[in-house]
Amino acid sequence: MMNPQVGQDSVSTALVPAIGYSSNEGLLGGLIYSRYDYRGNVAPFNNLFESSAIATTKGFVEVEATYEQTKTFGRDLRSIANFYFYRYTQDQFFGIGNETTFSDQQWDNEYYFFRSIGFSFDYRFRKPIYEQGRSQLDLQFGAATEYHIPYVRQQQSSFVQAMPVGSDGGWTNNINTGLVWENRNSEFDPRRGNRLELELRGAPNLISNYGLATARLELRQYFYLFNFLTVANRFEARHAEGDIPYWEMSTLGNKNTLRGYPLNRFKGNTSVAYTLELRTWLLKFPDFYGLKFGGQLFTDTGRVFTETDDANDLFERYHQTVGFGGAMSILNPDFILRGEMGFSEDVTRIYIGVGYMF
């Protein structure tokens, strides 16, 4: 259900319940809640709150919440706070490297699974340092804390056989900085424009159980074809250096990269990922609360690198997945409920969330 009060100077809310069943996790229940505050005529919004929670009868729990404020402390300072908590009854570890193997029999015997629990809190600011028309360059800075621990490890499992760095759990506390440049025509449903983000993070031994540093570069591009089709491109490269626990490694196989592969399928020091997505709104009912139905096709490509790889591996042995999905928007064009199915050579996975993936 949604609050129908949507406009330039209004507040809009969305509440979406979910229920399901999985043979592995049992009965599933979830809730998605979003709140969009447009009061004050501040673009793209005054503040935004997005949250989701899911739990199953077999102990799986995942909770995430994000709050954004475009004007913080009355200044031209955008703040973003993100909280994440999980209790995975089937966290997954396949080893380190781009060529780790997958076996249906070992998957069925839960060889790749272990149980883990963790949480993170991230708070950052964005300060504009250049603005002209729709183009804007922001300086970004902030800090984050996170804790992870595997609490159940079967002796006959890939995790115990490898005992990666971080197998005893622990804290990583980091400070971060970077730049964000963009000129997209919309943050929620972009059809034209670009976005670039460079992020540098450091977790010194003085405040963390593991001392490490990471660098991440993300490029996005959008353009419109035939007056109905959005072509969305995303490239991301990430590198981690130092005493790297398994949860801080550059990882592919999640809701943002190589959709369709099992969770955390590939881990390495460095990762490169690319996504091409075609999006369109298929059916529109403007007189019925602005209801829209859309669809998307996508392909994800990427690979990870370890210290044993060399320059010749840069253009070889990339993994690829394909998939399709649907989208729905009602009352508020900024609220988009998305569902997708990704196909890989290993398994097939389903993803549900608010907003486009990028």
Rank of each mutant, 00 (worst) to 15 (best):
F266H: 02
G253W: 00
G133A: 13
Y88L: 11
I19S: 05
V16M: 06
F305H: 03
N82D: 05
E345A: 14
T145H: 01
M2P: 00
Y318R: 02
S34Q: 12
T89G: 08
T72C: 00
P150T: 01
W281E: 04
D346W: 01
V63Y: 14
N227P: 10
T70L: 02
L179H: 09
Y123L: 08
L196E: 05
G133V: 08
I19D: 04
N227Y: 02
Y21F: 14
I32R: 04
S10L: 10
P128S: 11
D76K: 13
E197I: 13
R349H: 08
Q92W: 00
D104K: 03
T13E: 10
G133H: 05
N174V: 02
F305S: 02
T57Y: 15
K127C: 07
L258P: 00
N233T: 05
K58G: 13
Q140P: 00
P17R: 06
S22T: 12
N233K: 01
N183G: 13
N24S: 10
E146K: 11
W171T: 01
Q296P: 03
T321D: 04
A273Q: 06
G268H: 09
F159L: 04
T72Y: 00
A240Y: 15
L314H: 06
P150D: 04
A53S: 12
G260I: 08
D310M: 08
E218A: 14
N173M: 03
E241Q: 10
P150Q: 10
Q136G: 01
T145F: 02
L77C: 03
G169N: 04
F315P: 03
A53R: 02
M341V: 15
M163L: 10
D91T: 00
L314N: 14
A55L: 11
F121D: 07
L297V: 10
F93I: 00
R220P: 01
K267A: 11
D243M: 09
A240R: 12
Y222P: 00
N264K: 05
L276V: 05
T275M: 13
S10H: 14
M328P: 00
S34H: 06
V347D: 07
Y123F: 14
L283K: 08
E62C: 03
I149F: 04
G118Q: 08
H148Q: 12
N185S: 13
G295Q: 01
L297Y: 04
E182F: 03
F298T: 12
A43F: 09
E62D: 15
E99L: 05
E146Y: 01
I350R: 12
I330W: 12
G59V: 11
E64D: 15
Q106N: 13
A240W: 09
G268S: 07
G339Q: 01
Y123E: 06
G118F: 09
Y210G: 01
G242L: 02
R75P: 03
Q320M: 07
Q132T: 13
